[in-house]
Amino acid sequence: MKFNCMKGLAAGALMTVAFATTATAAECIAPANPGGGWDFTCRQIGKIMFDIGAVDKPIQVTNMAGAGGGLAFNHVVTERNDDADLIVAASSATSTRLAQNAYAGMTAGQVRFVGAIGADPGVIVVAANSPFKSLNDLVDAIKADPGSVAFAGGSAVGGFDHLKPLMVLQRAGFTDITKVKYIGVDGGADAITQTVGGFTQAMTGDMSEIVGFLKSGDVRALAVLTEERVPGFDDIPTAKEQGLDVVAVNWRGLYVPRGVSDDTFNSWADKLQKVADSAEWKEAMAANGLAPFTKVGADFQSYVDSLVVEVNQLSKDIGVIQ
């Protein structure tokens, strides 16, 4: 048995060598614990960048969980403002929280948004045995008796998943949003479990969270919140074609510190574009229910800026923030 230990040690030494090369590589901060969407973004993008040769050393992923991404944001702004070797995973949750001033006064202008290379379409789903056959059935039921429908979603109250049904109801002319029941649980899969279990009547989340459950027939998607129907899920109608014009996608992307040079910014944007064009990323997207959504460089920065303004206004209109 001593032999096994020695073997283990030898292999440990082998791994040591493998690891020594990562010493000065670029760093990707995932502002959450391992296992979430941001972590996925860092690891996938980092891996593909290395595999396709966009960077010459594997990108080191650091998890910096805290304050829904606020801790990492603060860290980048105050301590790493000119670090050219740093990228940070971001998503709609980042821009939503910035728009709702949930990062203790920090603003979207304090970093530079490099790009998004995929988006998770928002969806509203019900259990397979639900009486609601269309989004309008659901909306009508809420209009008739707001207490009869409870939503479950993966974000806290006022977060992006909560905003989705509120936006739909706002478009439908229902504005008494304090009456709408919503419980925030720990992630989309948990929200589905609660809905299939019959504890809540509908689930609001992202396409990636429901793919498996759609295939198994446990749930039925009432609407996808995109402009067009999502390829591969052509039988799910958009909210728009049901007369409720709501578009809400959860983009996955990156930001870099404010203080980097334009050259650095553009080079990260190029690298991200290369990832977007790679076959590997397409495969990863397909496996995880992401829809193509590529915006990089200045184009994306202005998209995020307008998104922040829009969500801020919307949150005020709906009453999520004062």
């Binding site: 614990n33 996938q44 498996g212 496996a287």
Partner: peptide
């Protein structure tokens, strides 16, 4: 648990998405 969350992440980086059809 936290640990299974990490295993889940691993499966997803390997392009395996756990779910009812797995």
């Amino acid at each position: 648990s936290g640990t299974t969350a990490v295993l889940l992440a691993l499966l997803m980086t390997l392009n395996i998405t756990p779910g009812p059809t797995l």
